[in-house]
Design a binder for these strands. Structure first.
Lengths: 214, 214
DNA sequence: TCACGGTTGTGAACGCTGTACACAACCTCA
DNA sequence: TGAGGTTGTGTACAGCGTTCACAACCGTGA
């Protein structure tokens, strides 16, 4: 975290040490405050105590830096989802447990979007397709990306006999769509400014809808 | 459309005539091609054949121009939804007709996002809360904004006895979330690059989920 | 008819951004 | 000790949003 604090960005060595990491961390802080547009290459180098062009030794261009920040944000999202999942008790009958786990996944997703709107928007800013969704750089502590965590929860639903096997394929897209859409509307769209109680309420109803409609 | 075509941006009068409209149209074209980030004030003035600073006679800053483009994009979205709604036959029993109308609303939404991704993203770029969602500038030919069109379809569902009255409040947020989320994932997110057939398929399943889960 | 005042477009300027390139400091390894 | 690759520096350029003094224009009342 060289140069992240106050004071002049002093460095004892000419080499920085781990500039790449420092830039990603600075970029992540910027994203936290203002979303993907706030990830400004020059500001990141300033915070790392380094000349603007130094960034080009580690990233092809601004988009590449944003891509790294995006991966970091997805990893943070995965951690949030894992955290909510860990709260689900391991006892009870398998069916209700599997349902609770899917709800936890959704709750973690929505909670993260609500708590860290800038990071959440950054997590979906850089271009990615389904291949990138499995990249380890986007995984949480359990080694799974947000997408994979959701898929696992749905698999659990099938194993517990709650979700018919023939409806399993593609189900992650449906569940993800619902949660993602609500998250966007809550932080960016016409639902911004809902108070936390209303937000939690509509979140619950949305998860009800998914559970019943899958 | 002064200066929109090729050739030097000549003007016979000193006054432009309708610079505000010309700037919004140029901005909308830019958004169509590259989303909200592509709405570059200087480029819009260039296309209108006017000096950059002239824009500030009609818009406080770039965000204000983007806001106008956003309203235009929402109006276009409303027109697309109305178009799909107009295809629903007026005969048949009220319940299935009401259901068909809700599906048409969703289909129109998804179709527009798929056909005009840049415009769609622009439509939700500028800050707006629920009050703005009723602004006439964002309405289609029927005078309703996208949000109001959806609300009307849900009201129809209640009148036809398909949706219990007590579940009506807030239902627009659930339906909108699902459609909006899928749209985002399809044009910007991990589902980008799905071929049209798969996209149509997942769209249908999503609307099934909404219909069953509301 | 004409001067006046408000509206609208011009031109030059400022600071910011992303990016390129030659150069210098540094580390590693022979 | 010296060669060569890696990493950070300094300077430069074009493009962006924005400001401001000025000029062209138009409608109005004397």
């Amino acid at each position: 975290m060289t140069g992240t604090g106050t004071g002049p960005p002093k460095r004892d060595t000419y080499r920085h040490g781990d500039l790449r990491r420092a830039l990603v961390e600075a970029g992540t802080d910027l994203a936290r405050g203002g979303g993907p547009d706030a990830v400004v290459l020059r500001e990141a180098t300033r915070r790392a105590g380094v000349a603007p062009s130094a960034a080009y030794r580690h990233f092809a261009d601004r988009r590449a830096l944003l891509g790294a920040v995006c991966s970091a944000a997805q990893a943070a999202l995965a951690v949030a989802m894992e955290g909510e999942l860990a709260k689900v008790p391991n006892r009870g009958d398998p069916a209700t447990r599997a349902r609770a786990r899917l709800r936890a996944v959704g709750t973690g997703y929505l909670r993260f979007a609500w708590a860290e709107p800038g990071l959440f928007r950054a997590a979906f800013s850089a271009s990615e397709d389904l291949r990138d969704a499995a990249s380890p750089a986007r995984a949480g502590e359990g080694g799974l990306t947000p997408f994979q965590i959701l898929a696992a929860a749905l698999d659990g639903l099938v194993e517990a006999g709650v979700l018919p096997r023939e409806r399993r394929p593609g189900a992650e897209f449906l569940a993800w769509s619902a949660a993602h859409g609500l998250a966007m509307l809550l932080i960016d769209g016409p639902l911004r400014g809902l108070d936390p109680v209303q937000a939690r309420d509509v979140g619950r109803r949305l998860l009800d809808m998914v559970e019943q409609g899958l």
